[in-house]
Design a protein around this nucleic acid. Structure first.
Length: 250
DNA sequence: GCGACAG
DNA sequence: ATCTTGTCGC
């Protein structure tokens, strides 16, 4: 199995990573409506980690937006490319996520990320970054409010309240199920906030989290288990010799 | 300076 | 993210 490495020139420090965000931020396209909800394809991407083994597994699951049926899937396994630092999540996930999108047999359509887009300290979260690198329409749907504030949306599914960075609205707290904790939606690239909300609702007919995220989450965990199975911490055969040569760096 | 902080 | 048993409910 090929292991995705860390790209040459990938930021090695937090300072460098923040500079990259400041540089790429200007390439985000806002104000486009984005694809009509319920049409075309919607792709969920997610990542799972094994820091012990220095492995990261990414999955992309393409759904028919109208039926939510799975149209295509792909996985990719890579090495951890950056530590988890709030505000720099993209540098941890992007190399493997880009690789997994490249492996899809069809165009992804709208990409739904597990995390934020505009709702970010420098307004350039994972969904924005991925959108800029691929030029695909992208949105972020997160499970937590991060550092932002919001008022509780009304209890009915579909209700939302502004997600605020001070007085600036950077996204919405959206109730996807009656009486259940909201999700936090923000714009990534080439999609409006209204479009992002509509897509999120179309993807949550039954559960709090989008079908895209749920499918991608299950798949990347499975891919990680399979990758880790082949690479135990101290790989040995019954006779004690190494079971596999060290994987070539990339 | 301290605490909080997407995944 | 990940560590983790049982438990309540559809």
């Amino acid at each position: 199995m090929t292991i995705v490495g860390v790209p040459a020139g990938w930021p090695a420090s937090e300072e460098e990573a923040r500079a990259v965000q400041d540089e790429l931020r200007g390439r985000v396209v806002l104000g486009q409506p984005g694809p009509p909800p319920g049409t075309g394809r919607v792709t969920g991407v997610d990542v799972a980690y094994d820091d012990e083994l220095d492995l990261v597994a990414a999955a992309a699951v393409v759904l028919d937006a109208a039926t939510l049926d799975v149209v295509a899937e792909a996985t990719a396994v890579g090495r951890v490319s950056f530590p988890y630092v709030p505000g720099l999540l993209a540098f941890r996930e992007l190399p493997t996520v880009s690789a997994v999108l490249d492996r899809l047999p069809c165009p992804p359509g709208l990409v739904v990320c597990d995390g934020y887009g505009l709702a970010h300290p420098r307004r350039f979260g994972l969904a924005s970054h991925l959108g800029v690198l691929t030029d695909l329409p992208a949105i972020g749907v997160a499970k937590n409010p991060f550092t932002f504030t919001y008022d509780e949306p009304a209890p009915a599914r579909g209700s939302s309240a502004p997600l605020l960075a001070g007085a600036e609205e950077v996204g919405r707290a959206l109730r996807t199920r009656d009486g259940v904790k909201p999700v936090f939606v923000s714009v990534g690239h080439r999609v409006s906030l209204a479009g992002a909300l509509a897509h999120t609702l179309a993807l949550t007919p039954r559960f709090r989290l989008p079908e895209t995220t749920r499918r991608a989450d299950a798949l990347c965990r499975q891919a990680l288990r399979e990758a880790a199975r082949g690479r135990p911490g101290a790989p040995t055969r019954p006779d004690g010799t190494p079971s596999a040569p060290p994987p070539p760096g990339r």
